[in-house]
Design a protein around this nucleic acid. Structure first.
Lengths: 143, 143
DNA sequence: AGATTATAGTTGTATTATACAAGTTATTGA
DNA sequence: TCAATAACTTGTATAATACAACTATAATCT
């Protein structure tokens, strides 16, 4: 089997995802989904589960549980929506923001170690190509 | 927050993994782990669960179950090891090889679509950088 | 050789993220 | 006003995984 670029990328992506999933499993998952939800709330402000589920492309029930779990940890508050008594706003708390920020720093730290020895240009290129890949993937998902 | 390369990459990796995990969940997972196990057996030949678990960096019990599941589908055979009656060799079958190959093709196909419009050089670079990243990550894991 | 220890594998149990389906309460619109 | 719709929660199921307990065999050490 000839190892052209596509084959190389396929292989690398498979390994990449495997390692991450595996590592997360070992350390007790949650982190990633919690992180993403917190990031969403931090960046775009309070929202209800439906909007969040749309943004994150997850099932409403999944987000509902994730959000509850964050409420338990006091990382988010569940505020009733005065205009619609069916729904709520989940709002990141001070504690949640701190948690997010510290998590962010850790991630940057780890990533920085991973990228040790890379030139600035290589880093930029990697980021750019990943982004391009993601954009295409996301576009395709929404069809 | 300034968006330097590390921040960009962190963001893109998070999104990348999220989308993949999510998509797999939707379509009934298994595919990835089965694929990786089949690939391992195809590439390196028959092996017992311990060796496989080492290679794939998974718990023995996990591999044991994955292997059983592949035996049920007739993708692999479970052969007794004549030199050690405690252990077995799992060997990919003809059917398993075909399944692997067709899975591979599908993945290439999808990936090719994803990389539409990329120059050959961009593809090579992407593969190379992913590989570099993976190598570092794997090295760090084994410490 | 016999007893102890180590090894290969399987199976039981738990956890996490997820989806789908069913249910509750509130809103909207004919 | 009452039927349909919407936002959310909760019940149930699934998949990949780990850890712990167990079984059978092999290796090692008196």
């Amino acid at each position: 089997m000839k190892e052209d670029s596509v084959e190389l990328i396929e292989r690398q992506i498979t390994d990449f995802v495997r390692r991450i999933v595996m590592t997360e499993q070992r350390e007790g998952r949650m982190e990633r989904s919690a992180y993403i939800l917190l990031r969403q709330l931090y960046t775009y402000g309070p929202a209800g589960v439906k909007a969040l589920a749309n943004h994150l492309q997850l099932d409403i029930s999944t987000v509902s549980r994730q959000a509850s779990s964050l409420v338990e940890k006091n990382y988010v508050e569940k505020l009733p929506n005065p205009d619609d008594k069916r729904s709520y706003f989940y709002k990141i708390t001070e504690l949640g923001s701190e948690e997010l920020e510290s998590n962010r720093r850790e991630r940057f730290q780890r990533l920085n170690e991973m990228l040790e020895g890379w030139t600035e240009e290589e880093q930029e290129t990697f980021g750019r190509l990943l982004k391009r890949y993601n954009n295409t993937a996301n576009k395709r998902l929404n069809m």
